[in-house]
Design a protein around this nucleic acid. Structure first.
Lengths: 284, 284
DNA sequence: TAAAAATGTTGAATTATAATTTCAATAGCG
DNA sequence: CGCTATTGAAATTATAATTCAACATTTTTA
């Protein structure tokens, strides 16, 4: 019942009469397009008739056009992708969606593989007792910082995520020993982040970094170093497409790790948050 | 166009009216049998009518019965998915990392499967000529809005992503017909987002929504509806862990789709951005 | 709280569309 | 030249999709 339609066409190609072969060739070249075409449309596009399409189905030993359609739909289910692939001009939406999914998944998998669990444990143990956590990242990394801030606030952990270097400097200048500065920079070389980290170090505030895997100024400065996999990041010179997902993945792990350690407290905090939002929304 | 039919049915099951739900359930129980049944046969077998089958297809956002058939044919050739798994108290770091990776990957895969490529195309064609794109989302969805804004600015597309409802109202009140309002809300029921959308609609501004798959106030209001898969989102009642990745994935696809259509322009814009950042950083 | 109005849901009947068959015309072949 | 195979337009049949009146449900109003 399942798939094999394209293979059938290929095998049969030579022994088919001219009109049917035209159809077969057309389908092999545009397998996707036949899924939402009618028999007659295909006939015309392949410069022959709709009747030839039906005859082709019979020649293949199938019951009819629907049968062929279903088999080809099965053939077109994407193969599992591996590795990173860039996107070319004029690429189809379908192909973009596939490649993007594949790249995103790959970056998460790669990041999972390089996790240093001792370092992760140290991060959790540092963050749990912290009074305030100051996330800092600029540009694309600020998105991650904001996400982390939101998550931390949910479990009743004070958190900031400003972009203004001067403001952050002020905060660090007045930070207590119970505070943690958490710096995010994919490259690990963002000037502002390096400055903020240096300041924190000088002031004796605990520091955690999240950068791409490998040596970098930011990572070397931080007390605890977390990494995301440095993937090709080919995708369209865009600088921050799948790396961003890997960073969020690391934030999730941190958040969930902290949450499981203080399970009851977390559940309670999250339910309270939900209540509060409902109150704002519905007023009761 | 690829598969995901069964997932769609599963996601939608609860919000369907009785007759359509009967059909959905029947199909989920006998996916294979629908491949060579007619609309009426299915209707009768599920103890309702053929009309309900067609209505179900429309409810899923598909064009018709053939569309559903093709997607289910795709589902039947691939191995069964793992599904989502929640995290328990005192779970090991390793296990958290694994489950989180697995859930994240699943949500991206599921989202890929339910993409409606015609709707995506319409979104791209609406966004490309837009003068300004106003992203709007609050709470966790604002993170996504900000991410989208950054991406759009990179390709020289004016974009905003404010949280202040009054401010956004002002913007929409003064928006031109060439502007687009892009609303993000996982639940699709965020009051502020509904208000903003209604205002935009009233003002005749084009609207795009990004919500979880299924019927929702936000989606019904928008001209163009994009979806992420509504997964169990079990992960620790946290409300926004892997759904966020799926949303970012959709933003990536939109961005890359727009970028490939105007490839040279994009490359140039991105290189200029890089230059500008280097200038700020190194001063030369 | 009951009645009325509005809204949503249903499947039988109808219409529209697409798949399949028929058949006369034509091409290929010994 | 006569036989057989192939072809596509037209007819037929099957199927998908829409319409609509009846019914059910929810919401509004008095």
């Amino acid at each position: 019942m399942s798939a094999g339609g394209l293979k059938m066409l290929q095998n049969m190609l030579e022994q088919l009469p001219a009109s049917e072969r035209k159809i077969a060739q057309f389908i092999l070249e545009n397998p996707r397009s036949i899924l939402d075409s009618t028999v007659n449309e295909i006939g015309v596009q392949a410069k022959t008739s709709g009747a030839a399409v039906i005859r082709l189905c019979k020649s293949l030993g199938l019951n009819g056009f629907q049968d062929l359609k279903v088999r080809i739909a099965g053939d077109l289910v994407k193969p599992v992708e591996q590795g990173y692939r860039d996107i070319a001009p004029g690429e189809s939406y379908f192909s973009i969606a596939q490649k993007t999914a594949s790249n995103s998944i790959q970056s998460i998998r790669d990041t999972e593989e390089i996790i240093n669990y001792e370092e992760l444990e140290r991060a959790v143990q540092t963050l749990l007792p912290a009074q305030n956590v100051h996330f800092f990242g600029i540009g694309a990394s600020n998105i991650i910082a904001k996400d982390a801030q939101q998550k931390f606030l949910r479990i009743q952990k004070n958190a900031t995520a400003f972009t203004d270097t001067h403001l952050v400097a002020t905060i660090i200048a007045n930070a207590s020993k119970e505070d943690v500065v958490f710096c995010i920079s994919h490259s690990g070389e963002t000037a502002e982040v390096i400055k903020v980290l240096s300041l924190a170090k000088e002031r004796g505030v605990k520091t955690i970094s999240l950068t791409k895997y490998g040596q970098s100024s930011v990572a070397s400065l931080a007390d605890i170093k977390l990494f995301t996999s440095y993937s090709g990041e080919a995708a369209f010179r865009s600088g921050a497409t799948s790396s961003r997902l890997a960073q969020l993945y690391m934030i999730d792990i941190l958040f969930l790790s902290m949450a499981t350690v203080q399970y009851e407290h977390t559940i309670q905090a999250i339910d309270q948050t939900r209540e509060a939002i409902r109150f704002i929304k519905d007023g009761n």
